[in-house]
């Protein structure tokens, strides 16, 4: 890597100070705006429907945990079942997206073979598929093969639609990693698979963490596939269960938000709690080229 040498500039203390203030202000405003929805959802969940409809953004005049109590006691809402379904679907999908994305991404980045480009373009095409208008063909394909309405049904679309992003990110990341590492391992007698999992996988940790975060939330929140491919209430995932709070002409948003917060709590806590470790993990993965 070519290192350009920049001359020291002096007498810019004032400019420096202004720039620091500006940069920090921008970032703080941005971060605050990003966390606002969570804050808003929390205090809105302490309102009753009437109060929310009358004033969507205001603070609750009479904060109450009534919504939480209702959700946790009403069996019709099947929150617990849907949580289990969502956890299972998300965990399996993300694990397999990571595994498949890593393997395919690595092969596409490092192995020259006929079909490399074809697979690349095929994966790219997958990212251009407008899911919302393809729901009927998707349903028909799954129905004909008897794979709709099963506990594993959603794994197929989630993995398939999550894979291209994972492949591309791994591919892009590996392009910046020198190939010498693997060549050396190969000379030392390490097999292809050995190199793949023992040497490359640890290097890819930062980008794998990123993929895991992105896909966890994507699978957790996915709605359209779940809607058309599942029929049994017992198989519903969290976003489908949330529709129980919506009526034809009115929706109880504070209640939905309470339910969302309850159901999102595990992953949000996980995300915030581990974000420090995650970032440490990212830094630990540094390879110096």
């Amino acid at each position: 890597m070519a290192e350009k040498v920049y001359g020291m500039t002096t007498g810019r203390r004032v400019g420096n100070g202004v720039l620091t203030v500006v940069m920090n202000t921008i970032m703080i405003i941005f971060s605050l705006s990003c966390i606002f929805p969570l804050v808003w959802m929390f205090y809105s969940s302490l309102k009753v429907k009437r109060e929310f409809n009358a004033d969507i953004i205001g603070l609750p005049p009479n904060p109450t945990f009534e919504n939480y109590a209702k959700i946790l006691t009403n069996k019709d809402y099947h929150i617990a079942d849907s949580l289990i379904n969502s956890v299972r679907t998300t965990a399996l999908s993300v694990a397999l997206i990571l595994l498949f994305g890593f393997v395919v991404g690595y092969i596409l980045a490092r192995v020259k073979f006929r079909g490399n480009r074809v697979i690349w373009i095929m994966l790219l095409m997958g990212m251009l598929i407008p899911v919302h208008s393809l729901l009927v063909p998707i349903y028909i394909v799954f129905n004909r093969t008897g794979m709709n309405n099963q506990w594993y049904t959603l794994l197929f679309p989630y993995i398939a639609f999550g894979m291209p992003i994972a492949v591309f990110l791994i591919h892009g990341y590996l392009k910046a990693v020198p190939v010498a590492l693997e060549e050396a391992a190969s000379i030392d007698g390490s097999s292809f698979s050995g190199t793949l999992f023992k040497i490359i996988m640890p290097i890819c940790k930062p980008v794998m963490v990123t993929i895991a975060i992105i896909q966890t939330f994507a699978c957790w929140n996915e709605f359209s596939f779940a809607l058309v491919l599942l029929r049994d209430v017992g198989l519903h995932t969290v976003p489908l269960a949330m529709t129980q709070f919506t009526g034809q002409f009115s929706s109880d948003y504070p209640k939905i938000m309470s339910a969302m917060l309850i159901t999102m709590a595990p992953i949000v806590v996980l995300y915030f709690g581990f974000s420090k470790n995650i970032i440490k993990g990212m830094v630990a993965g540094v390879v110096k080229g």
Partner: peptide, 23 residues
């Protein structure tokens, strides 16, 4: 020059996890 790095890193991603209805 930018302080609170880990906060910015963590918070920024949050909006993309919320369903479009609420955004």
């Amino acid at each position: 020059f930018v302080k609170l790095k880990s906060i910015h890193r963590t918070f920024g991603f949050f909006p993309s996890t919320i369903a479009a209805v609420y955004v």
